[in-house]
């Protein structure tokens, strides 16, 4: 049986029926980072608090990765022949933070700046034991 292994610890809550990204909020500057950070890049403060980020937001910008990224650093197992383009975007989560993410669609016609998006967890590769490596992504909210 394959296990789902998150690409990194403390990136998102897992296992969970409604996973959330995990960031750090710095009360003094009002800055929220993603992922967690030991210090605030605005004030230099080290007084951050772990926060769970909103699961929904709006698309701030996007692109489509049209060619196979070099490995390393890419850990996907596709070849130039099997590679399928994937969407990448920035999603604004309220007034808190804008996070970068893979998108579940790579169709330019399905992506519009300002559209509603929600967090999902997707497999993006496998490890040497055949387990699924999973990461977060954002998907267009179904109307």
């Amino acid at each position: 049986m394959t296990t789902q292994i998150p690409v990194a610890e403390e990136l998102f809550t897992w296992p969970s029926d409604s996973p959330q990204l995990i960031g750090t909020r710095f009360p003094e500057s009002g800055v929220t980072t993603f992922p967690q950070s030991k210090s605030c890049p605005k004030s230099g403060s080290e007084n951050g608090e772990r926060v769970l980020l909103p699961r929904q937001g709006t698309l701030w910008s996007w692109t489509v990765q049209g060619f196979l990224p070099k490995s390393p650093p890419y850990a996907g197992k596709e070849t130039a022949k099997t590679f399928k383009p994937y969407g990448v975007g920035y999603i604004q989560l309220g007034n808190e933070v804008i996070v970068e993410s893979r998108l579940t669609t790579a169709e330019a016609s399905e992506l519009k700046i300002g559209m509603d998006m929600e967090l999902v967890i997707i497999p993006f590769s496998t490890d040497d034991d055949g387990n699924d490596l999973i990461t977060y992504a954002f998907a267009p909210v179904k109307k």
Binding site: P73, Y74, A75
Partner: peptide
């Protein structure tokens, strides 16, 4: 395209692993 090393840029390995670490994506967005 350049194949940067996450650690030397101060970002987590997961960022490179998941296919986000490409300068070309930044320029597009």
């Amino acid at each position: 395209a350049f194949a940067p090393d996450p650690a030397s840029h101060g970002v987590g390995q997961w960022y490179g692993d998941t296919g986000l670490m490409l300068t070309t994506q930044f320029f597009g967005m």
